[in-house]
């Protein structure tokens, strides 16, 4: 912004941007440290170039491993997990639409049998995407839904089975055990399937997201992250801490409530958005 000199004030401003973007204090200090070193090493003179360097550092942390959905060879099963209200069901609708338009056959499993009208909500998304849905009564065992859905996927020769699950806070032991049970069923009933297991994180979430990843990882064989609600003013910077600690790629982002509001994650765009004022 107003800075013309590379001084302490500039670094403090950068620290503020990172922290208010939910990057977290420790990761912020690490990044600013790295920035100081690089500025020295590369003899950077211009404030503008400092900012570019900063973006590169962020990009570097976030890039690396492959962030494409792995749904080949078919059949594939995609399981969506996460805490309450982050955007699991909505993301499933969006993904179903995308896969279908790529010519894949898709089946949805309404694995949230707990929350009021969860299956009805997913059913609306199934209709919008033009795919089929397997559901049970509210209150029934979610593992049984997944079991049925796997049989259904086999019978239909479905390319991708996408399973919704109920929102659960990671500190609820019984709910996490229920999740582990779902994965045991999948391993037993569908060993031939390619597995993707995505944890949905709401970009408005603060440092708690780090715990979410840690603990969900214990119950579910996570393969990646969907970062939702990036259309708001929250930056989702906590994924930087997650990425440096947990090595879990961000695969998709949610940028709205409509069926087309799903994008591939792009580290460069993310870094740019982190440093743009809204």
């Amino acid at each position: 912004k107003g800075h013309i000199e590379i001084d302490e004030e500039l670094y403090e401003e950068i620290e503020e941007i990172l922290i208010t973007g939910d990057v977290g204090f420790e990761t912020t200090l690490k990044i600013v440290d790295m920035l100081r070193k690089n500025v020295k090493k590369k003899s950077i003179q211009d404030v503008k170039d400092v900012r570019e360097e900063l973006k590169l550092i962020v990009e570097e942390i976030l890039s690396g491993d492959d962030s494409n959905l792995k749904l080949e060879p078919k059949p594939a099963i995609l399981v969506i997990v996460g805490v309450n209200g982050v955007g699991k069901t909505t993301s499933i609708g969006k993904i179903a639409m995308r896969l279908k338009s790529e010519g894949k056959s898709v089946l949805l499993a309404a694995g949230d049998t707990f929350r009021a009208a969860a299956a009805e909500q997913l059913e609306v998304w199934a209709d919008r995407a033009g795919v089929e849905l397997i559901k049970h009564q509210e209150g029934s065992d979610p593992s049984a839904v997944i079991f049925d859905a796997i049989s259904g996927a086999k019978a239909r020769n479905t390319d991708v089975l996408i399973c919704d699950t109920a929102g659960r806070l990671h500190n609820k032991k019984n709910l996490m055990q229920e999740l582990a049970k779902i994965f045991r069923i999948i391993d037993r009933e569908y060993p031939e399937a390619t597995k993707e297991v995505l944890l949905v994180i709401d970009a408005t979430t603060g440092q708690n997201a780090i715990n979410q990843v840690k603990i969900f990882k214990e119950a579910a064989p996570l393969t990646g992250i969907i970062l939702t609600k990036l259309d708001g003013t929250a930056k989702g910077g906590v994924v930087l801490s997650i990425k440096s600690e947990q090595q879990l790629p961000i695969k998709l982002i949610g940028v709205g409530e409509k069926i087309e509001d799903l994008q591939d994650f792009n580290a460069k765009d993310f870094a740019k958005a982190l440093f743009s004022s809204n």
Binding site: T20, V83, D202, T204, G206, A234
Partner: peptide
Amino acid sequence: DSMTGQDAVNIAESFDQTLGIDGVILTK
């Protein structure tokens, strides 16, 4: 949502300025 990060302040300020709020309910 009590898990909200730094943006909580922007959110609350905006809702309060544009709409006027009387109070907050924290969830989760």
